[in-house]
Design a protein around this nucleic acid. Structure first.
Lengths: 197, 197
DNA sequence: ATAATGAATATTCAATAGAATATTCATTAT
DNA sequence: ATAATGAATATTCTATTGAATATTCATTAT
């Protein structure tokens, strides 16, 4: 890996993703990925230092797609901060749920790399957290919320909603039940338990 | 498996747990478990229908131990409901964290069976939830909380604190950081985000 | 120079066979 | 009867080895 042409790197990731989606990570060979792009397997090593790194790049790429969709929610006009927080969580849940069903191979790839590479889990967490922070900041601006420590609070919300972002828990309930639960958790985070008089 | 002498069943589970703790589930043989109790391997099948069921019984047994410790917190005198909710979550986190470090083999056993047997995950969830419900009910009695739907709310709190009960996430932070985070999440659940005037 | 390759080497995968272990069962002991 | 066993059978691990694949590198192309 001596070069850095982002264009070719991106092409490689896309070709690999297609293969991974259909046949899975293990059943896909470097030769196949290279073949799809009309190059030799050896040449892939000019752009990635090994197959694992291509896998990890795919995982990041998949996550970026989800990030785009979530960002749309954050930037949507005409929603209150509370509505955004709800929709953010539900959109996230929906995406994970559908991905797990429609793209099991990609889902497996994701789980594989997230269990190995802590930095991926961390990066994901950071992005989610900063999107939540944006929603909170807006809530503060509109007077809906009164959050003093944005960073701390967004981290807490990210932690409290982690169940809705992890396939592992998806087996516990139906999607509808899960959506209900997500809604309830958001409600609690917004209103709290404490008595108000 | 034709008999039901709980005494011998319990002895088997305990002998198995010792073996599993030292050598792991796979490296432990039925003959060894039986040998430790001075019986033949064949005789184990009078009490359990197979090795997996012994493993599952161990997992349940481990969980019951944790349940006892958590129940102590719930029943402790002189703590407010809020304090109990905090201590409950922190005790839980602590227990999982230490278990993961001090008994990796048992931890592995737990993860193994929880990924396979949904009913174990479900049972665990139920117990946690009902303990939380007890805390909430007390909060209602003392006027600290005003929770109308105990079941729904305890389910929400269980979901919101799941990160502090799963070894997977333990890699993300140090124990101290995690405790801080747990504290913050509980704070949010109690106070909520919404502006109060 | 950078980009790419084919051939050489290192590593991983898959099939197999033999050993170890789980499970069953006919029989014995209490 | 229930409890337990040893021996028989079924299943699951564990090496092993050849094949497939990943990775390196010396060389060629641009």
């Amino acid at each position: 890996m001596t070069t850095n042409q982002p264009d070719i790197r991106q092409q490689i990731v896309e070709a690999a993703e297609q293969r991974f989606r259909h046949y899975g990570y293990r059943k896909t060979t470097m030769a196949e990925i290279a073949g799809d792009l009309g190059m030799s397997a050896a040449n892939l090593y000019r752009y990635f230092s090994n197959k694992e790194d291509i896998g990890a790049a795919c995982v990041e790429c998949c996550f970026k797609e989800m990030e785009l969709i979530l960002r749309e929610v954050v930037e949507k006009q005409g929603l209150s901060a509370e509505q955004k927080l709800r929709q953010f969580t539900l959109t996230n849940l929906d995406y994970i749920y559908n991905e797990a069903i429609n793209n099991p191979k990609i889902n497996e790839l994701n789980e594989m790399f997230i269990n190995e590479r802590a930095e991926l889990l961390h990066k994901k967490k950071q992005v989610i957290q900063s999107l939540i922070a944006e929603i909170l900041a807006e809530g503060n601006r509109t007077g809906e919320f009164r959050v003093d420590d944005l960073l701390k609070t967004s981290e807490s919300i990210a932690a409290a909603t982690v169940a809705f972002r992890f396939p592992l828990f998806m087996t516990l309930f139906s999607k509808e039940k899960f959506e209900q639960l997500a809604n309830d958790v958001i409600g609690l985070l917004i209103q709290g338990l404490a008595r108000r008089d």
